[in-house]
């Protein structure tokens, strides 16, 4: 499909999020470029994570419209957005601690005959046909991220960086179309940062749309096709890092501190 006829998969129009009289997100409108990696940067308390949560449906929008794949999803619950391929990760570790690493991935699979009461009651013979390919898929991801040896360990016993990897792999098990990443590299060992970096680029080549909150500007510069800058709940600029560095007010607001 030509780019001109291919509107953005995810569009936010004048999105607000008020809480206890605070405007965490104060009228944000963006179109997330399809098939690109977009960085979302800004100082602490700019509302980046809140905005991501509103896009994913974890928090309801107070005002505004969110359109995903041509459909208004503003009132759609978070789980339904995830099932349609709009998947987020979290800033804080959010692993299922007393599930094994492999189970953390398997549980995210969107289609499994055994994932309903009736399917479960019919027994293993009924759902194993779905389960086995998922196990293979999950093991493929574990291998790719160098965590094969950990598959049977409880996720709660992993290091901070490993938990972050688990979360990214878990999101990928859903076969997302848009991935919303909340500081995916924080607390991750530098060698694994490289690995995540490569993998995200590979996902982009496969056509995945990514919006990521990130603090490390050199990572953003290397990885993101374009960048949106937020401060005090508003978008104060967007473009490539190079063009943003030329805008004085943005540099003042954020880039140099």
């Amino acid at each position: 499909m030509p780019a001109a006829l291919n509107p953005s998969l995810l569009v936010a129009e004048d999105v607000h999020r008020h809480f206890e009289g605070m405007h965490a997100v104060d009228g944000v409108s963006i179109e997330v470029p399809t098939g690109k990696i977009t960085g979302l940067i800004g100082p602490n308390g700019a509302g980046k994570s809140t905005f991501l949560a509103v896009l994913a449906g974890t928090l309801p929008a107070s005002e505004g419209t969110i359109v995903y794949d041509g459909q208004d999803i503003t009132r759609m619950p978070a789980y339904a957005r995830a099932r349609r391929g709009l998947v987020r990760t979290f800033q804080l570790p959010s692993e299922f601690a007393r599930l094994t690493v492999l189970e953390n991935l398997l549980v995210a699979a969107p289609k499994n005959r055994g994932d309903s009461l009736w399917g479960a009651l019919r027994g293993k013979g009924y759902w194993m046909v779905d389960e086995q390919p998922l196990i293979d898929q999950a093991r493929g991801l574990l291998k790719r991220f160098g965590m094969t040896a950990k598959e049977s360990d409880y996720a709660g016993t992993m290091s901070g960086g490993q938990k972050r990897l688990i979360e990214i792999m878990r999101a990928l098990m859903l076969k997302p179309r848009v991935l919303l990443l909340d500081e995916p590299m924080s607390g991750v060992h530098p060698s694994i940062v490289e690995e995540i970096h490569h993998y995200l680029q590979e996902l982009r080549r496969e056509g995945l749309t990514i919006l990521m909150v990130e603090h490390e500007l050199h990572l953003v510069e290397r990885l993101c096709d374009s960048v949106v800058v937020m401060a005090q709940g508003k978008v104060i600029g967007s473009g490539t890092m190079a063009t943003l560095r030329q805008q004085k007010e943005i540099v003042d607001a954020y880039l140099v501190g």
């Binding site: 206890e20 974890t58 928090l59 309801p60 619950p77 978070a78 789980y79």
Partner: peptide
């Protein structure tokens, strides 16, 4: 209530 009474369940 202003805070903490309930968490977002969905």
């Amino acid at each position: 209530a202003k805070r903490g009474a309930l968490a977002a369940a969905g």
